[in-house]
Design a protein around this nucleic acid. Sequence first.
DNA 1: CCACAATACGGAGACAGTCTCCGTTTCCGC
DNA 2: GCGGAAACGGAGACTGTCTCCGTATTGTGG
Lengths: 221, 221
Amino acid sequence: MTPADAGKATLDPSPGSVAAQGSSAATDASETHEKPVRPMRADARRNYDKILATARIVFTERGTDSSLDEIAKRAGVGPGTLYRHFPTRAALVDALMQDWTDRVAADADAAIATGQPAREMLLGWFEHFIDHITLHRGAASKICAAMDDPASPMYRKCRVMGDANRRVIEHLDARGELRTGVDPANVMRLVSGVASVADTSHAELDVRPMLEVVVDGIVRA
Amino acid sequence: MTPADAGKATLDPSPGSVAAQGSSAATDASETHEKPVRPMRADARRNYDKILATARIVFTERGTDSSLDEIAKRAGVGPGTLYRHFPTRAALVDALMQDWTDRVAADADAAIATGQPAREMLLGWFEHFIDHITLHRGAASKICAAMDDPASPMYRKCRVMGDANRRVIEHLDARGELRTGVDPANVMRLVSGVASVADTSHAELDVRPMLEVVVDGIVRA
DNA sequence: CCACAATACGGAGACAGTCTCCGTTTCCGC
DNA sequence: GCGGAAACGGAGACTGTCTCCGTATTGTGG
């Protein structure tokens, strides 16, 4: 669509890798037998990128439930092309998620690096996390659903975010600042739940008070 | 889009009362001018009931996102009839909610009556609450959305449930067992969020651990 | 008990979104 | 350049939402 994105090219989902269309979970068969993974054809890559750039815009404007055909149209490709690259909506959201999973992981480490007391650290981390996953309306609840569904294309990236969270929790736990028996996975669900509520809610509600309750339920009394 | 928001007509099949479609959500203009609320015609009431009964079955079987046309078909009425009685899906869910709002309110009072310590009482109450609002798949997140949206047909009943929750919280607060500054509305959102996560999740996950965190965040340390 | 206005019915069909199939076009290695 | 593999794109099948309006039902006043 706009000439801008053609040039900037939000390329390369992962460094040096070629976009693989089969989101099969078993893809790292790197040792047994290398698939003859040939690089994407030039036009394919061009369309892939155009679709992704357009999706980012449309999802930001109207949320992750926007019409996919419209995204295709605005990207200047046929519906068939969109569905070939992204067989499901989740696959498309997933491709977009790449950006933030990186940032989320970085945020977690940054939070740990601050060395703040548990309460402040958690509050900060949770707020950043929520900011990221509510970037596109509707994304938070999709993440909630994917988190415990290995069949979802987004499952992998949910794990990355889950790992980031686990690092923070375990760090604080090692410092002895948490209650006993805090399960990182549950914390993750809880915080995503808060994100989801905030995202779905018609009112612009502040997540802070809810997060405070969660944090108080986690830190050692 | 649709003139959905114009819809009101939350019919109230409460015992003995006759459904009145004119009753706008905004005003009980009961004093200025009585609407000539005439009783529903026999065939109308018959269909209304049939639709509701069918919806209860279908929503239980396949969740609250099932096709409305299918409900109409299975109820043996035309789509037009369904949409006349229930202009939006929310209106239909709302009508079904009547059952549980009553039960939820009763549960809250029962919880208070037990006189248990805060932790047990809250845990019990929250679990009952979640059991009710996750009866039909998809309902929990709709309730989350309606809770802070006065325009939703379900808003009224969300308030009833919110009031029930407030009673429990305030009771415990009066007993001095809660932290200072606990906001019932936020607790409600949080617990509904947990319900929503559990409901959306593909895995059958236990809400207990999450509720424990919330409860620990609420009760006095 | 009948006529007839008000009320409700129901289904055809407009509309929107998802997703696929397959004839056509584009790319890239030779 | 040429040829086959890879990718395109759009017509259209399908599903679900929601409306319009001719027809049927109801219950009331004569």
